[in-house]
């Protein structure tokens, strides 16, 4: 099967799942249920696409398929922000309940953190990208320690609010937030269009890319900024889904078996949508909301990842 037909197949599956999700058990209250479900599907497509794209680009830049951009501490920072706001101001404060304000604060702080991190580490020459990641992940543990401390002290009723924020959920995404996020994503996408063409060359590694005339530092720095913004938006919009990107990028690589990013990006976006819509269907119909989508995705992603590492004979 050629890659083109594989992509078409993926698109068909994604659309079928989305249609199934919208119309199964729709009941009689169409004008109530339909807009809500459409909104949910749209939120899933938006975040799924964003996460798939940013992970794929990230893995190409780092030349490694076992990393995901969420590990540079953005997830932990998001949790820290949410826990801190609830801990200090209480769950009824407008900083917590007003989704718009909360969204802006979260995205702002996360982008600022990523910016500072990049700035600190890209000052000199010869920067090692793994070094950046390690520093990020240490900050992640650092944020995690503080978050955990506050979570222990917090009132159990308030903790339920924190716990809701700990896991990504597509159930209550606000319409105006979707609008802001969509605009932001479109702007970032327009900006990154001119960088995408370098990705195939970047995947050859730094030395080859430089030899072939790519301004490596320029391109990589800009791509990293794009990734940070995208991850921040998706995290602030629905919550952290750390291992979704890992799952879909690897499945895309395995399924499509190509190095061309034009195929890989589109394919991974479809796979991401399939995973999220399918997962949401399972959460709602099989588990009857007993668990959350992000917990399942992280679980499946994590297990699949360990399987990949141990099973495949090639080294990373």
């Amino acid at each position: 099967m050629s890659n083109k037909s594989k992509l078409i197949g993926l698109a068909v599956v994604a659309i079928l799942l989305a249609v199934a999700f919208i119309f199964i058990d729709l009941g009689n209250n169409w004008d109530y249920a339909l807009p809500r479900r459409l909104k949910k599907v749209y939120a899933i497509i938006l975040t799924g696409g964003v996460i798939a794209f940013s992970t794929l680009v990230f893995q190409t830049i780092t030349n490694n398929r076992i990393l995901t951009p969420s590990i540079i501490g953005l997830d932990s920072l998001y949790l820290l922000i949410q826990t801190f706001l609830i801990f200090v101001f209480g769950s009824m404060n407008s900083l917590v309940t007003n989704e718009n304000v909360n969204f802006l604060i979260s995205v702002g702080l996360m982008v600022m953190f990523a910016g500072l991190l990049y700035k600190m580490l890209f000052r000199g020459d010869g920067q090692n990208i793994y070094f950046l990641l390690l520093v990020g992940i240490i900050f992640g543990t650092f944020f995690g320690s503080i978050t955990e401390f506050m979570q222990v002290l917090i009132d159990p009723n308030e903790f339920m609010v924190v716990q809701d924020r700990m896991f990504a959920s597509f159930n209550n995404v606000k319409t105006d937030l979707l609008l802001i996020a969509t605009i932001a994503v479109i702007l970032v996408a327009l900006y990154s269009v001119k960088l995408i063409k370098y990705l195939d060359v970047l995947s050859l590694g730094k030395d080859q890319a430089v030899n072939l005339g790519v301004d490596y530092d320029y391109v990589v720095k800009r791509l990293l900024v794009v990734i940070a913004i995208l991850v921040s938006i998706s995290t602030a919009l629905v919550g952290p889904i750390t291992f979704l990107g890992l799952l879909v990028a690897n499945v895309a690589h395995q399924f499509l078996n190509t190095y061309r990013h034009s195929y890989l990006i589109i394919g991974s976006v479809f796979i991401s949508i399939i995973a999220l819509v399918g997962g949401q269907l399972i959460v709602e119909r099989v588990f009857t909301f007993d668990t959350t989508l992000s917990v399942i995705v992280n679980f499946v992603g994590g297990v699949y990842f360990i399987y990949l590492l141990l099973k495949e004979s090639k080294s990373w």
Binding site: I66, L67, T68, I71, Y130, L133, L134, I137, T141, F167, T242, F243, D290, T291, T292, V295, I296, N298, F299, G301, G302, V303, F305, I306
Partner: peptide, 21 residues
């Protein structure tokens, strides 16, 4: 250590899966 910490957070997410239930 990067791989190790990734591995740790994956184990952590499996823990969360059961703890949440």
């Amino acid at each position: 250590p990067l791989v190790g910490m990734m591995f740790g957070s994956i184990v952590g997410s499996i823990t969360t899966f059961f703890a949440y239930k």
